[in-house]
Every structure is written in C-alpha cells, then in structure tokens.
Amino acid sequence: MLRVTDLATDLIGPISFELDPGACICVQGASGSGKSLFLRALADLDPNAGSVRLGGRAREAFTAPEWRRTVALVPAESGWWDETVGAHLAREPDPVPWLDALGLGAAPGWEVARLSTGERQRLALVRALQTQPSVLLLDEPTAALDAAATHAVEALLTARLADGMSILLVTHDPAQAGRLGGQHFRMDAGQLEAIG
C-alpha cells in the first residue's frame, strides 16, 4: 500500500491519501491546480517534504532510481534522447506484447522525430511498464488518443490493475474514472480532496 502523509512542495499540499494494491485513483482539476506538480513530488522529481511509504517502507530507504522504478511516472510530455524508438526500450522484459496490445508492434524501428503525440504517449507508457512498477503515475495518458486507442490503453491498464499494480491517474475525462473503477479526487489550488 502507498501511504502518503502531508506531502508538500512550495506550491502544493499538504496532501495525504492511501492507495491500495490493485486500486486506482483518478484526479481531476483545472489547469494550473497543481496536478502535474503533485505527480512529480510523488516520483521525488522535485524537492518535497512529507512522508511517503510503500508497503511499510519509507521512500528514503529506497535510492532515488529504485524509487522511480517502483513508483513510475509517465508525464504528459514524454522525453526522448535517442533517434530510434527501439533505443528507448529495454530488452527485458519483452516490450512486444504491450506494443502489440497498443497497436505499435512495428514501432521499435521507427524514428522518434516522426512519431505523433499519441504514439509518443503510448510508447512512453510501455517503457514505464518495463520497469515493472508497483505504482504507476499517469498524467493525461489518453489526452491525444482517439476512442479506439483510448480503449486499448484502458484495457491494458485494467489488466495491470488486476495483477495488483496501483494506478494514480490525472485525467480531464470524468468517464475514464468510471471505466477504470477508480476513486475520484479533485485537485484545487494544490489541495487534494475526495469526491464521491
């Protein structure tokens, strides 16, 4: 279980909540309400205060790289540092089943510069899944996707939830929370509150 107590940065918080294995939290909120900063603080990518524990173990007991492989963040804007898609994917575990599930089986040979925004989003999700995280933090994972691609991503996420992975998802789509069977939260001026 992910247990967060009084998580805060200069701009957001304090935020407290719990996320069980296999559970999903959907966060909505206006632009600029601090949703992305909240996810960055959870991934320890910005300096932050408060207590974050996973399965009873404090975040400080993990090295930062270990923590980010365990609590993996896929930001809204994905980053690329090499020319081909394949250079951004690990060899193990095999990415092909996930790529196939998202309709991107041929992507490893593609050039990054020619990817669409939606392709980048889905490929960034696959490479994050390859770190085999316990908790997945997603920032608008289906923002640039059509209905069919959104459905494929949600099916993949539902399967991961059934395997016990937890998901914390920022979305603008109120129906998405329902489809993933998650709890609703709202972010407002850096504060997180449960709704419904």
Binding site: R68, R69, A72, G79, W80, W81, A128, T131
Partner: peptide, 8 residues
Amino acid sequence: VEAQLLLG
C-alpha cells in the same frame, strides 16, 4: 533528461 531519470 527527466525521462531518463524517471525510468530509474
């Protein structure tokens, strides 16, 4: 750079 950091 942060994409690489986020992959651990």
